[in-house]
């Protein structure tokens, strides 16, 4: 029994050889998009994971608003509900959680041998990293969106005073900030994942940093309510800049200085951590 090879294959073969061998420009973008598409498709095949990805922010919201809400409103009387203060913090926290897991997929792909499939393909290694981060960004923006939508629905249902001062454009900006911060922070998870190739280490490193970053910032409480040393530390904590800018968008309005500082902080963190991730990625097999 012999298998005939259709002549179409011959065409494919000719086309394959005629195409440029390095992936630059549009080809690089195409690679990024396909890697991203694959990651999102995987996420969609995990309904359980997808559900918890979206439920997680809700749990944070419920826990923190209940645990701190009453205390907060007694301590600092504000014209709006504590949830309005908390909202950006939860959006950032959710992004951090997802970012911490970013490296898991790397470890899984290395273990399964799938990463080698990427590496023997004529694509640039950075395309694999950028594609994964793009998928992460979409996921984290969606999560932040869910947080905002739920808060909005609750504010209507329960009569919470949440100003949503900048409306939908401001909300989109918050989603963008959360995603940008998440991508920046994911650099750490990916670096550890690529260097250790171990899920536990990847989890522990990010997990250990998550809570100090969140609580040594204005993410959960207004900066003025925090001790002086935390206020000092928050000056070098990127979470603080993102939370402050996002909070203004909810409670008061556009503060472009804060927004600019937030993106600058994210950019510095992102270049630093993802630079390390790129180095770790290039070092694979070297």
């Amino acid at each position: 029994m012999s298998i005939a090879v259709p002549s179409a294959s011959q065409t494919a073969r000719a086309t394959a050889t005629a195409l440029p061998s390095a992936s630059h420009g549009p080809l690089f973008l195409s690679d990024v998009v396909w890697v991203c598409y694959r990651s999102l498709k995987k996420l969609s095949r995990n309904p359980f994971l997808l559900m918890f990805t979206l439920i997680m922010p809700l749990i944070w919201l419920a826990l923190f608003s209940q645990a701190f809400g009453t205390v907060f409103s007694k301590a600092i009387p504000e014209p709006y509900n504590y949830v309005a203060v908390l909202l950006p913090g939860i959006a950032v926290m959710t992004a951090i959680q997802s970012a911490s897991q970013s490296g898991f997929a790397m470890v899984a792909d290395i273990d399964s041998g799938f990463m080698d499939k990427f590496f023997v393909a004529p694509i640039r290694r950075t395309a694999v990293l950028v594609g994964k981060l793009l998928a992460d960004a979409i996921r984290m923006a969606a999560q932040a969106g869910v947080v905002l939508v739920i808060a909005y629905v609750l504010s209507l249902a329960l009569g919470w005073k949440i100003p949503f001062a900048t409306g939908l454009p401001g909300d989109l900006l918050i989603m963008l900030m959360a995603a940008a911060f998440g991508v920046a922070f994911a650099g750490l998870s990916n670096t550890v994942a690529l260097r250790t190739k171990n899920t536990e280490s990847t989890m522990m490193v990010s997990f250990t940093l998550t809570f100090p970053l969140l609580f040594l910032s204005s993410a959960m409480l207004p900066l003025a309510a925090l001790p002086a040393w935390i206020q000092t530390f928050s000056k070098i904590n990127p979470v603080a800049y993102v939370a402050t800018a996002a909070r203004s968008l909810i409670v008061s309005g556009y503060n472009w200085t804060q927004i600019g500082q937030a993106f600058l902080a994210v950019a510095i963190l992102g270049v630093l951590l993802n630079g390390l991730a790129v180095l770790a990625f290039r070092a694979q097999g070297r």
């Binding site: 498709k41 995987k42 095949r45 995990n46 273990d111 399964s112 041998g113």
Partner: peptide, 11 residues
């Protein structure tokens, strides 16, 4: 084709 089957189980 490597030693461990490099296919994506979720695809």
């Amino acid at each position: 084709t490597g030693q461990s089957a490099g296919v994506d189980g979720e695809l």
